[in-house]
């Protein structure tokens, strides 16, 4: 494959799915086969005095650099940071409130609430003892590292605390954006269907933990728990899967135990 333009005779189309690649080009081969980038990729002729300036920069470089700064901030203060993602209505805020309630006696918790508009979730979390800040993204469909950095500075979380970032309800866009978190938690609920890991694979592929929420409704919806877990494993074999009902509380113990263990390992 050409590293300059990505032209590749061997793949890309759906028909090659699952077929082994018999030929992975070496850089030397690329050089020989592929010198005239513009002439073969694009119909227009190269203009006089036109030249190509090599850049090779990740489009998300700025976001990723700020995310690294966020992570350094968290690490310097022994703060565990979670990025909670999932569809609108998957139960993210209820899950966060239950997590706060289980920990708040012994643990300072801070929440960054990402929503397109309004502050309804912030008002819900404000009733707990956690300190919360609202970030409205307007037409933006995800939080980015810069908005999290601004929010974190304002929150000024204490050492050894937990920072929970509730991303905008969206199973697509937030997957691309590193916020500097330690763990990416994706929540999906049984009412959404057991096929979601396959249909929204990038989100599940990028997560480290998956919460299957609303298990109290399992009897009422056509959701096969084993199928869901198999689908998750197909997309991400590293994923830690915890099934629970944030509303009823069942299964929360496993999550809280895991969270405490994560905080202890960060602070040791």
């Amino acid at each position: 494959m050409c590293d300059t333009c990505g032209c590749n005779e061997i793949g890309g189309s759906g028909s090659s799915v699952g077929r082994p690649l018999h030929f992975i080009p070496t850089p030397e081969k690329d050089e020989q086969e592929h010198r005239h980038h513009y002439q073969h990729c694009h119909p227009h002729e190269q203009l006089k005095d036109q030249r190509e300036v090599m850049v090779t920069e990740n489009v998300l470089k700025h976001n990723n650099l700020v995310a690294q700064e966020n992570k350094r901030f968290f690490n310097d203060r022994n703060i565990l940071a979670l990025n909670i993602m999932g569809s609108p209505g998957s139960g993210k805020t209820t899950f966060i409130i239950q997590t706060i309630e289980a920990l708040i006696d012994k643990q300072k918790v801070y929440v960054i609430e990402g929503d397109q508009f309004g502050s309804l979730d912030t008002e819900r979390i404000d009733k707990t003892d956690a300190k919360v800040i609202q970030v409205n993204t307007g037409n933006g469909c995800h939080l980015d590292a810069m908005s999290v950095m601004t929010a974190v500075k304002e929150l000024n979380p204490a050492n050894n605390s937990l920072v929970i970032i509730e991303n905008v309800g969206n199973l697509v866009c937030p997957a691309l954006f590193d916020l500097g978190e330690h763990q990416r938690v994706v929540i999906f609920s049984v009412t959404e269907g057991d096929d979601k890991p396959i249909k929204y694979a990038p989100m599940f592929h990028e997560a480290s933990i998956c919460i299957i929420n609303k298990t109290d409704l399992l009897q009422l919806v056509p959701f096969d728990h084993l199928t869901a877990i198999n689908n998750l494993r197909k997309v991400n074999h590293h994923l830690r899967i915890i099934s629970l009902s944030a509303l009823q509380g069942s299964g929360m113990t496993e999550w809280i135990a895991y969270l405490k263990k994560s905080m202890n390992s960060l602070q040791s």
């Binding site: 494959m1 300059t4 333009c5 990505g6 513009y38 203009l47 005095d49 036109q50 030249r51 190509e52 300036v53 090599m54 850049v55 090779t56 920069e57 990740n58 489009v59 998300l60 691309l176």
Partner: peptide
Amino acid sequence: IKGMELNVVSIAVVE
């Protein structure tokens, strides 16, 4: 190992 790229590779400029 491939398929997650998101890079600006080059720009074509005219003096």
